[in-house]
Amino acid sequence: MNETAPIRRTSALPESGDLHSDGVGATASDATAADGAYNFAFLDEQTKRMIRRALLKAVAIPGYQVPFASREMPMPYGWGTGGVQVTAAIIGPEDILKVIDQGADDTTNAVSIRQFFVRTTGVETTTETGDATIIQTRHRVPEQPLQEDQILVYQVPIPEPLRFLEPRETETRTMHALRDYGLMHVKLYEDIAKHGHIATTYAYPVLVNGHYVMDPSPTPKFDNPKMHEMAALQLFGAGREKRIYAIPPHTKVKSLDFEDHPFEVQRWSSCCALCGATDSFLDEIVTDDRGGRMFVCSDTHYCETRRAAGHVGLAAAQGAEP
């Protein structure tokens, strides 16, 4: 986490944002990149320090939800304010940022968050998974394995894995403290009794470092094994719920299961129609109103890289390029 330590740019105080001066403030229209109206990465340095403290605590207690004084951000709650604050607290001018949503760099919200950081920091951005020093993500872990000099920042809507079993924060905090996860195991057992398998496909709960049960954010369970012993630092930010948690590099992350019903990930009967990948998470694309379907990689960078390397899927072979 060498990016976080020094504050490399000090505050350019938002003097020009003063509404009572003639300019009526810095509105969305005057897009001066890394604009002087706001501090580097939007947040003031005090706030960044507060978030970094929470991050350090989170790294020290893997999987533990650290309360933090989440700020009101200029994008809506539930749209990545937690991830944005974490990224804002760790980003430096030399960082290279990648932002994905559903695995793709060009989904609208990923574009919007990337533009926010371009505007407030002026940092370089990339779609190359391997080139990024910070990757902010919603709902996916990139297919390409991450390295030790990378940080993966997750946007988290509901950080509490026990929330839908027990709505009260006072209760769930006690349950975590006592490692009282009986309720969760009963839920998974009931799934098996009812359906013959565990009927949770995303936000599948994991046990981190043998202690805390953690919500991996609504990533598909397909991505859970990637979190285990990952070389990169994984940071989770939940803005509306005001929680930060983390998985340090090379930490054990175990998806909850039973000996006779071991955890398993989704499998597809088809491969990616564009690049032919058989090992990636596939999105289903409806191609017509007569039941036509095709499956393509959700991770757009992974798919593009494979195609550039000459891999060809069925649809691409038939000339149905995107």
């Binding site: 809506p76 709650y77 539930g78 749209w79 304010t81 949503d101 559903q102 695995g103 989904t107 609208t108 919200n109 919603r138 709902h139 996916r140 809507p157 496909t201 995303y202 936000a203 609504p218 990533t219 598909p220 509306r240 998470f281 596939l282 999105d283 289903e284 959700s298």
Partner: peptide, 15 residues
């Protein structure tokens, strides 16, 4: 924010 975030894509979860 949270109610309206349902407008955001949920492709992978829905998949």
């Amino acid at each position: 924010g949270f109610v309206e975030h349902l407008k955001l894509p949920h492709y992978v979860d829905f998949q």
